[in-house]
Simulated scan of single mutants.
Amino acid sequence: MPLTIHDIKNAQQRIAPFIKKTPILSSTLLNKWLGHEVFFKAECMQKIGAFKVRGACNTVSWLIENNIRPKKLIANSSGNHAQAVAYAARQFNIPSTIYMPKYASKVKIQATKAYGAHVDLSENRIITDEKVKKASEEEGTYWIHPFNNVKVIAGQGTAAYEALHQVNDIDAVFAPCGGGGLLSGTLIAARALASRAKVIGAEPLNANDAAESLRTGSIQKLTSTPDTLADGAMTMSVGDITFEYLKQLDDFYEVPEENIIYWTQWLTHLLKIHIEPTSAMAMEAAVQWLKKQKSKKKVVLVLSGGNIDHLVQKKIWNTNHLDITPNRHL
């Protein structure tokens, strides 16, 4: 059955004890340069530093609520979902094992361990995904998929659900796309709470499996690990559940690495917060969409996370983009 706003409302109540209600931020200078009103849902200020905690906590809470207590929780992730499941497992004293690729952010690997999870590292995401699938066959083990799970999607949708109660009369909502969980939940929330608002996604051009899937009408899978700084969007393919929601989006943008870096620098500077490159993709999508509008618009962007290790920081700031202001960049 398709998810509804009631699933997201229930998720919001379920996870309330475990998460933060993150703030809405804006930049007067950015709005002046763009000629539009842009609001940011700062999930980089969330528990574990990313929206992923919403889906993980909703899933585990739902299991406990329905008297299903796994002996072990497992997950596969390149970072933020790993931390989220480890955090959620700790809240209910359930052992957890997280399967991660070795190239995952060192900060995210360390944080996952700090939340009490056992971390199993593999050479690449393909091996990681194979390991978690095999481990899920063990009795008493529950696999919390990073996006292709209805409870995860409902939990992720609570970010937009909150945002659309914090900001009224929105013309469009933007969110990044990895496996599509956040974007699917955002679509469900927006269709119910702001029916006239467009819902628009973004992913790295270098990891554009979702865009290819939307173009062809069938799920396309990457054949190798993508070369992108947006590690939150390095999934090999979208899921069969999320794909059905992605097909309902109003628009979708593929963002080059240079633009991801550009907006990571500028949003960090303008909003005075840490944001991951994955979050910055939504800003480039918003800019491209706003350029086509003939009247002033009011939009919300979900800043998905803010966990960045020093190696990624070096790559982001290797070249200074702050000498080209957004009004000149456009």
Rank of each mutant, 00 (worst) to 15 (best):
I5P: 13
K9F: 05
A11M: 09
R14D: 02
I15M: 02
F18Y: 15
K20C: 06
P23T: 09
N31R: 12
K32I: 15
W33K: 09
G35L: 07
H36S: 04
E37M: 04
I48M: 14
G49Q: 11
G49P: 10
A50Y: 03
V60S: 02
L63I: 02
K71M: 05
K72P: 01
L73A: 07
A75I: 03
Q83K: 12
Q83M: 14
Y87E: 01
A88P: 02
N93M: 11
S96N: 06
I98M: 03
P101H: 13
K102M: 11
K106A: 08
I109R: 10
A111E: 03
G116N: 06
A117E: 03
D120N: 11
E123T: 14
N124D: 15
N124M: 12
I127T: 10
K131A: 02
V132K: 07
V132A: 02
S136Q: 08
E137Y: 12
E138S: 12
E139G: 03
E139V: 11
Y142A: 00
H145V: 00
F147D: 00
N148F: 04
N148L: 04
G155V: 07
G155K: 08
Q156S: 03
T158R: 01
A159Y: 02
H165W: 09
N168I: 10
D169Y: 11
V173P: 00
F174K: 03
F174L: 03
G179V: 00
G180A: 05
G181H: 05
L183E: 09
T186P: 04
A190P: 10
R191L: 01
R191V: 04
A192K: 11
S195F: 10
G201E: 06
A202M: 04
N206L: 13
A207Y: 15
A207N: 06
N208W: 08
N208I: 08
D209A: 07
A211M: 13
E212A: 14
S213M: 05
L214D: 05
R215E: 09
T216D: 05
G217L: 06
K221C: 14
K221P: 07
T225A: 11
P226K: 15
T228V: 00
T228C: 01
T228G: 04
D231P: 04
I241L: 06
Y245P: 03
F252Q: 06
E258L: 10
N259P: 10
N259L: 05
I261C: 06
I261S: 05
Y262G: 01
Y262C: 02
T268L: 02
L270M: 13
L271H: 06
A280L: 06
M283E: 07
V287A: 12
Q288F: 11
K297N: 12
V299L: 01
L301S: 09
G306H: 11
H310D: 15
L311T: 13
K315E: 06
W317N: 08
N318D: 13
T319L: 11
N320H: 04
L322T: 11
P326S: 07
R328L: 12
